[in-house]
Simulated assay, not measured.
Amino acid sequence: MKKTFLLLAIPLVFLNCKTDKKANGKLNVVTTTSMITDLVSHIGGDQINLQGLMGSGVDPHLYKASEGDVNKFVTADIIFYNGLHLEGKLVEVFEKMQHQNIKTVALADALNKKTLIGSTYFASNYDPHIWFSVDNWKLATKHVVTILSEAVPEHQDTFKANGEIYLKQLDALEENLKNIIETLPKEKRILVTAHDAFNYFGKSFGFEVVGLQGISTATEAGVQDVQRLAAFIIEKNVKAIFVESSVPKRTIEALKAAVNSKNHQVAIGGSLYSDALGNTGTPEGTYIGMFEHNVNTIVNALK
């Protein structure tokens, strides 16, 4: 009932707030995930008013719009979101925004579908965790530059310059990650996590990736899933498995207990950032810092 109320309320709020747009002469931009907020902040800088919906530890698969979120949406000039049903519970809200002539931009639309990882278990038929390919994030960066430049042509030189700087930082990140991963023997590159968020990472850096839950955290792991993965860990002699900052720890703890009950020791190697960045103001609160943290944590634990 509350969801229906929010959707019905959008046109009314829109009428009340439309005149507030660009109150200080800057573009009002709203982003969904913390990864996208970080990306857009690098490109837009001080030339835009930026509001991100989801903070540290927030699961976008399960996120529902609050009344405050609706107010942010209707006063936005542009909404950047991931797409591929990552923000599954916001799809109807995005559709309503489009009817109100508010530009909504899915970063996944910037990618070639041939490079996407398919999924028979997810509504979009594609894995939405596109940010775990640095190449994907470079394309997303270029897309954001294009969209902002079209929206505010007088600042396009700034957006393009910011984009070039960030692309160079992403190049350096990719090289750094490869160097760290090279220290881990190939036979040890097996990543077991709470849910299937790291397939693009595995494809990019040569890891076999197995998640206890599916691509969406809306699906829950059952006893058979735990036993199946426990057998896999024992067979492959995996030394460490990983929890995620935006997913409850209980599933991985149950997996560890199942493995240990079979006289095989496996450790929890640390916490990875999957669907959200770390706290604002920390290195892990940025895309680059998050990725470096994840790779260092994985490599150190699996060594």
Rank of each mutant, 00 (worst) to 15 (best):
N82C: 10
M97W: 10
K113C: 04
V74L: 07
V144F: 14
Q51I: 06
D59W: 02
A123F: 14
T115K: 06
F73L: 02
I48Q: 05
V58K: 06
V70T: 01
S56A: 15
D127A: 03
D157K: 15
I48C: 07
D69C: 03
E95K: 11
V70W: 08
D127C: 04
S66K: 05
N49D: 10
A106H: 13
D59P: 07
D69V: 03
K113G: 04
G88I: 08
G55V: 01
H155C: 09
N101Q: 12
L107Y: 09
I147Q: 02
K113W: 02
L148K: 06
G88T: 07
G68Q: 10
A110T: 02
I117K: 04
P128W: 02
T158N: 12
S133Q: 01
I147C: 05
F73Q: 00
G52D: 03
W131E: 09
A76D: 03
L84P: 02
L53W: 00
G118F: 12
V105W: 05
I130T: 03
T104F: 14
P60F: 02
V91T: 07
M97I: 03
T115I: 15
K142T: 09
V105N: 01
G83N: 08
N49I: 11
F159G: 02
K138Q: 05
K72C: 07
L53C: 00
Q156W: 10
Y121Q: 09
D109S: 11
V144H: 10
A151E: 09
W131F: 09
D127H: 02
Q156I: 11
L111H: 06
H85M: 14
F159A: 01
G55K: 00
S149T: 08
E67P: 13
V152N: 02
G52F: 01
G83Q: 08
K160H: 15
K103F: 14
A140K: 13
A106C: 11
I147T: 07
I79Q: 03
V105D: 00
L107N: 09
V74H: 06
W137Q: 05
G52Q: 05
G57Q: 06
D109N: 15
S56E: 14
I130W: 01
L111R: 04
E87G: 04
Q156P: 02
D135N: 11
K160Y: 13
T146Q: 14
V93T: 05
T115A: 13
Y81H: 11
G55P: 00
Y63Q: 08
K142G: 14
V93P: 06
I102F: 08
A110G: 12
L62T: 12
G52N: 06
N71T: 09
Q98W: 14
F132W: 00
K72H: 11
K138G: 02
V74D: 04
Q51T: 09
S133V: 01
Q51N: 09
K113Q: 06
S149Y: 11
F73S: 00
K160S: 10
I130P: 04
V134N: 00
N136I: 01
